[in-house]
């Protein structure tokens, strides 16, 4: 009985901390829903510049309630182990929403995110669902890149 309770406690805690695995249509829906400006960051646990720029995204998520930050992990492209992403998120204490994109055939879906995206990580798409205005930042975020782009798509 005790083991069973422990098992449930563990299962619940894993469920709370694990990240949703999404397909492209679900991701596109998340990007386009509501009025808020979306800051969609494409990253992976193995990508050093992605990890370096994460504090910018976490700070934005904490300080600006008018935008929605979404961190899209592309780890499955190389390694199908969800626990690696979960333990990374817990270790870094990430508060922004994290989803894992599970799509084969990158050449087919990369242009559907943005026609100018090469596929290199990191990449950050700032978009305004109400107006369709968007800005893609390829490579590591610097200084006030995010704030400037948010202002640009909010005009």
């Amino acid at each position: 009985m005790k083991t069973l309770a422990l098992f449930f406690a563990l299962a619940v805690s894993v469920a709370c901390y694990s990240q949703a695995i999404v397909k492209l249509p679900e991701l596109q829906e998340m990007m386009n829903e509501g009025q808020k400006v979306k800051v969609v960051n494409f990253w992976a646990t193995w990508c050093a510049p992605c990890i370096k720029e994460m504090p910018f995204l976490e700070r934005l998520n904490r300080d600006n309630q008018n935008v929605k930050v979404l961190l899209v992990s592309l780890d499955f492209d190389l390694d199908h182990d969800q626990s690696k992403i979960t333990s990374f998120v817990m270790r870094k204490k990430l508060n922004s929403e994290v989803v894992i994109l599970d799509e084969p055939d990158p050449n087919a879906w990369i242009p559907k995110i943005d026609k100018n995206w090469s596929g290199a990580l990191p990449a950050t798409l700032i978009m305004n669902p109400s107006t369709g205005k968007r800005k893609l930042i390829q490579g590591e975020l610097k200084n006030d890149d995010l704030e400037k782009s948010i202002a640009e798509v909010s005009k």
């Binding site: 050449n107 995206w117 090469s118 596929g119």
Partner: peptide, 14 residues
């Protein structure tokens, strides 16, 4: 022409 997920290029002075 195709695309893939990969590591970005480390350019100097960028």
């Amino acid at each position: 022409k195709t695309r893939a997920i990969g590591c970005s290029i480390k350019w100097k002075n960028s």
